[in-house]
């Protein structure tokens, strides 16, 4: 077994370790993207004067 395979296998706990890190990556990425997208969209709505009475 190469050292890469050993690394991914995590001593037999690969599924548990990598699913933990995978979920964390997804949740963190969502927390980065959501405010950036919301910010851009909100700025566009304000520029288009959607909130002016």
């Amino acid at each position: 077994m190469t050292s890469w395979q050993a690394f991914w296998a995590m001593g037999g706990y690969g599924a548990f370790v990598w699913s933990s890190y995978g979920i964390a990556a997804v949740v963190l990425l969502a927390n980065v993207i959501v405010p950036l997208v919301a910010h851009r969209r909100l700025k566009r709505r304000i520029r288009n004067e959607e909130f002016d009475d």
């Binding site: 690394f7 995590m10 001593g11 037999g12 706990y13 548990f16 370790v17 933990s20 890190y21 964390a24």
Partner: peptide, 19 residues
């Protein structure tokens, strides 16, 4: 994930603590 040694009781599963 890479540098720390495996735990003597938990093996590599302990690496979840870094999250």
């Amino acid at each position: 994930l890479v540098l720390a040694p495996a735990d003597y009781q938990q093996g590599d599963a302990f690496r979840i603590i870094y999250i």
